[in-house]
Design a binder for these strands. Structure first.
Length: 655
DNA sequence: CTACTGCCCGTCTAGACAGCATGTC
DNA sequence: CTAGACGGGCAGTAG
């Protein structure tokens, strides 16, 4: 099937031709056969690199009206925004938390790119443009199964379809076990394929020997670090890190690049520092470009993390994890794409993030600490890592290697090489998620009774799988919780007729997009603060940090005593008395975060805070960002409740 | 006495969405 | 039931 045969206007055909897109890939052709160009609903469960963006563009360009592209990450939204903006004559708008156009402007766009939360928020705030959509493309729709964000996605999608029954839905999914369930939910035709433009072979390494699933095998020379004199046992296992290093060196010697996935941040750094010894920059001949990338990283800040990263980059390797600032990350990603780095040692950030393909992917660790024990990574996640292997046009094929040993080999093959990814299951029944979306349904006026709330949820994936009736009890509980929290009121109209109405606090909470528990905690905190003799910025930081919408900051054993002393010394400025906490540990963590933020507005530098509180510079950034959002919510809630706490505005202004 | 080394034991562990309003060259 | 890197404290040991 040729692009020129599609019902696309000439400028688009030319645009794609300029990029070398003339012939459709098989999955793309299948999507056309399923009707993407004719307004039909389509679910495409196809590999990441198989041309999903083009399928999305087909839906958006052939739709008879404005389109919406929903994706889970801001970085992804930015990437897609740029791709769509290069289409001739297409007005593209973007709406994410960090990068936003006004509702007015969005209404005039042909295509809007947004995160799912932002779409949800737009609906809650009564944006009109969502009702005029002709086509909605949902990327990474398998996120439906994610703990907190999945329910948001399904409720948002259900609401969009309910308000606009004719809207075309095109959903793009990773390979999952039950794509037909998603397609059934969306009344869509399922397109399923594992075709890739670059072949991918997956294998397990034992020592320096790798057996791939296509029957081929390779051997790499692994340095043996262990000293045979000291350990008498026949130590069969070569060090996983050394196996990884050998696999990386082998790829580089062959002119390719590598991604290496490990379990934790510190191990990503440690592996990068180990690889830096191998002189890969010299081998690739990227000395000056590597130097330039290192300088760029050092220009971001003077943190330890930045220096470590710069040193690694000079040797042609990098690490990548959420403790890095976005400035660090973009340098690493760009350097790798420009072939100015041989290898990125990464935590899972890179598996689902922006497009950074490599010839070989090495998954050194397949287990991760999960609260109480080590757990196998989900197959879906490992497949996403492996799917990064193979750069179209640059690599003859992609290779994914799982590092194991004799004992784990069989399990790794069964679980990840031959195993099916998990099924996507709705998490809407989770009480916390349900409370949020019940409040939203009431606050927007979509529902005034429990039955009507169930009606709103009727179009969700959960309802399709389990029946909306299954939610009845849980919804009743959620309503009671919201009434008790002062978010919702039962307004009696007759003998046993009543309607559910959001209180002003409930309405503000919903519009500010904070969780009900957060809204409740902030109001209680403001009330206490308003009566305190001297409510300071620390006071309001303690309040917003003690909500579930602020991420908690790890509190080490040594630090605990120190933070405890700090909390005691500043008890007069805190809204919580030490004896009154439900969860003292958690509260102490909040105090730590609050202290960091208060020192930040007091003029402390990133370098000082990173050093003093053992957090990554990227962690600091993300807490500051959340604090800005939560303080604005606090300000709005102060206004609706009439509580006056000047420190809120003071803190906000200084952030 | 000092510098060094090996060993035991405790600590620590991935990621990342969201508000809002408005003038400006 | 399933990990593994790292660092501090401490005792033994060579010089």
């Amino acid at each position: 099937m040729r692009v020129s045969d599609l019902p696309l206007a000439e400028p688009y055909v030319d645009h794609f031709a300029e990029r070398g897109i003339r012939e459709l890939y098989p999955p793309q052709a299948a999507a056309v056969d399923a009707g993407v160009c004719d307004g039909a609903n389509v679910v495409a469960a196809i590999p990441t690199a198989s041309g999903k963006t083009f399928v999305a563009e087909l839906g958006l360009l052939t739709a008879d009206g404005p389109g919406l592209y929903v994706c889970p990450l801001r970085a992804l939204a930015r990437e897609k925004y740029e791709a769509f903006a290069s289409l001739p004559g297409v007005d593209v708008g973007i709406s994410t938390g960090d990068f936003d156009a006004t509702g007015e402007a969005l209404a005039g766009n042909d295509v809007v790119v947004a995160t799912s939360e932002k779409v949800d928020s737009a609906i809650r705030n009564g944006a009109d443009w969502v009702d005029e959509l002709a086509c909605v493309v949902v990327d990474e729709v398998h996120l439906l199964g994610a703990e907190r964000r999945g329910p948001t996605l399904e409720v948002t999608l259900a609401t969009l379809r309910r308000r606009n029954p004719d809207v075309q839905v095109v959903a793009l999914s990773a390979t999952v076990d039950n794509p037909e369930a998603i397609a059934g939910w969306l009344d869509a035709t399922l397109v399923e394929s594992d075709w890739r433009p670059v072949d991918l072979r997956t294998g397990v390494a034992v020592g320096g020997h790798v057996d791939f699933d296509d029957g081929t095998a390779i051997d790499v020379a692994v340095a043996d670090e262990s000293n045979p004199e000291t350990d008498g046992d026949d130590d069969d296992g070569l060090d996983d890190t050394e196996v990884t290093a050998a696999l990386v060196a082998d790829t580089v010697a062959d002119g390719g690049q590598c991604l290496a996935f490990v379990r934790s941040r510190t191990e990503a750094v440690a592996l990068a520092e180990r690889l830096a010894e191998d002189g890969l920059a010299g081998e690739m001949g990227i000395g000056s470009a590597a130097e330039a990338a290192a300088d760029e990283v050092e220009a971001v800040d003077g943190t330890v993390t930045g220096r470590q990263l710069a040193d690694c980059l000079r040797s042609g390797v990098a690490f990548h994890h959420a403790g890095l600032r976005s400035g660090h990350r973009s340098v690493v990603e760009a350097a790798f794409r420009d072939r100015d780095a041989a290898c990125i040692c990464a935590t899972p950030t890179l598996a689902a993030g922006v497009n950074v393909p490599a010839r070989r992917v090495v998954v050194r660790d397949q287990k991760r600490y999960a609260g109480s024990a080590m757990e196998w990574l989900p197959t879906l996640e490992v497949h996403q890592m492996c799917g990064r292997a193979g750069r179209p046009g640059l690599d003859p094929h992609g290779e994914a290697v799982l590092v194991g040993d004799e004992d784990t080999e069989a399990e790794l093959v069964e679980r990840y090489v031959e195993g099916e990814p998990e099924a996507v299951e709705s998490k809407l029944a989770d009480p916390a998620s349900l409370r949020t979306h019940v409040l939203s349904a009431i606050a927007t006026g979509f529902a005034e009774t429990e039955e009507e709330i169930l009606g709103v949820f009727e179009g969700t994936f959960y309802a399709r799988e389990a029946g909306a009736g299954g939610l009845a009890d849980a919804v009743a509980v959620a309503v009671d919780d919201l009434v008790a929290a002062g978010m919702v009121r039962r307004e009696t109209g007759g003998v046993d007729a009543y309607r559910l109405v959001a209180t002003p606090v409930g309405e503000t909470t919903s519009k500010q997009y904070v969780r009900p528990e957060t809204g409740e905690r902030i109001v209680a905190g403001l009330r206490t603060a308003a009566e305190m003799a001297s409510a300071t910025t620390l006071t309001v930081f303690e309040v917003i940090c003690d909500t579930p919408d602020m991420q908690d900051t790890y509190l080490g054993n040594e630090e605990r005593a120190e933070i405890y002393r700090f909390a005691r010394a500043n008890a007069g400025q805190l809204t919580t008395a030490m004896g009154e906490t439900d969860d003292f540990e958690e509260w102490l963590e909040s105090v730590k975060t609050a202290r960091i933020l208060d020192e930040w507005i007091g003029g402390a530098t990133v370098e000082e805070l990173v050093e003093a509180y053992r957090i990554g510079p990227g962690d600091l950034d993300s807490r500051i960002e959340r604090a800005e959002w939560l303080l604005s919510a606090a300000e709005a809630l102060a206004e609706t409740t009439g509580l006056s706490v000047p420190a809120v505005s003071r803190a906000r202004a200084r952030l």
